[in-house]
Amino acid sequence: MTLVQGFFIYFAVAMTVLALLVVTRKSPMHSVLWMLAFFFHTAGLYLFLNAEFLAAAQIIVYAGAIMVLFIFVIMLLNLKKEETERKLQKHWVAGLVVSLVLMAAMVKILSGITVLPPLGEYSIQFVQLQGNLMTIGKVLYTQYLLPFEIASVVLLVAIIGAVVLAKKRIL
């Protein structure tokens, strides 16, 4: 077993365990915290693939913003009822069957995959030389400018929608 494989096995096992912990904890707050640990492992996996920007974005966006929102909701709702209820309710057999079928399908599809060589000039050496951040920025703002702008407009619509819903009187 090489070091690379060792790292990957650690991340894979830890992420599976953490995901299980997220769905089985009684307290919603504990679930959220295991989820936070899970996001850190995802970021670690990205770092391991030389995707530094993605790792930082993962922490800033998911751990720093989205999970804080989750925690806010849990804090303000005070979910005491949730804690006393059983986590595994009667539908769990159906859930298990669906997820096992999904897993079998994933294994089938992923085992037939072939890894393509890097596209165009973007070889691993090139990206490392230029820096991950700069490469992503250049591609995003030249080749994929229109999709990028469309995504940002969609997000803007969501923000305006939230303000409109929350405000009693507009203007």
Partner: peptide, 17 residues
């Protein structure tokens, strides 16, 4: 790190936890 600034911003958002 070549993402030094982002790293600091990420950790400061973890600090709020």
């Amino acid at each position: 790190l070549n993402i030094g600034l982002l790293y600091i911003l990420a950790l400061s958002s973890i600090g709020s936890y």
